[in-house]
């Protein structure tokens, strides 16, 4: 089974009605962010803090657009405030496209703490998640985005190591 490419992820996002992305890069996300930036189907905004991406997508939701917040695991770990204060309080689902830095096989030692605790944060905040490791998994992306809207809370779409090209 082949690893998905960035264009595959963009296609899957677009098929779910996503037309906006707010991102802050991680090394493993450069391929996807570059693809989102150059793809006319998306409005792409760069943020300086991952919580801004959550707030931006929540505002876009209230205006009728579907946005995704794109960030690394470290960024996700800084988003508890925005998720609880905006997504939980107002019941607004924001899909998060991210990676799982620090998991088995990631040799960047400064990321391992993310992998130790990210799962617990997902569970504590009630954030459903799925890993998109192969092209066979791509169908989960539109399903997760629809689920985020229905559930009215974030979902995590986790891309493979070392990202998509």
């Amino acid at each position: 089974m082949a690893a998905p490419e960035a264009i595959d992820v963009c296609d899957a996002l677009s098929s779910a009605g996503v037309d906006l992305a707010a991102s802050l890069p991680d090394t493993w996300l450069i391929g996807l962010i570059t693809a989102l930036e150059s793809d006319d189907r998306f409005t792409h905004l760069r943020v300086a803090r991952e919580e801004s991406a959550i707030a931006l997508c929540a505002g876009a939701f209230c205006g009728g657009r579907t946005g995704v917040a794109v960030m690394g695991t470290s960024g996700f770990m800084t988003c508890v405030y925005a998720i609880t204060k905006i997504c939980t309080s107002y019941e607004i689902g924001v899909p998060i496209v991210m990676n799982l830095r620090g998991a088995v096989g990631d040799e960047a030692t400064h990321h391992y703490g993310n992998a130790l605790y990210a799962g617990g944060v997902f569970d504590t905040l009630g954030i459903p998640r799925a890993s998109i490791n192969t092209t066979d998994d791509l169908h989960q992306i539109p399903a997760l985005i629809r689920h985020s809207r229905l559930l009215k809370r974030p979902v995590a779409i986790c891309l493979p190591k070392p990202g998509v090209k």
């Binding site: 906006l20 409005t43 919580e51 707030a55 931006l56 505002g59 876009a60 205006g63 657009r65 925005a82």
Partner: peptide, 21 residues
């Protein structure tokens, strides 16, 4: 939209809204 207790987030919420409408 009263974005209560979300300090630092209001302008980003407003930006998303402005771009969408």
């Amino acid at each position: 939209f009263y974005l209560q207790a979300s300090m630092g987030m209001a302008s980003m919420f407003g930006l998303g809204l402005a771009i969408s409408v």
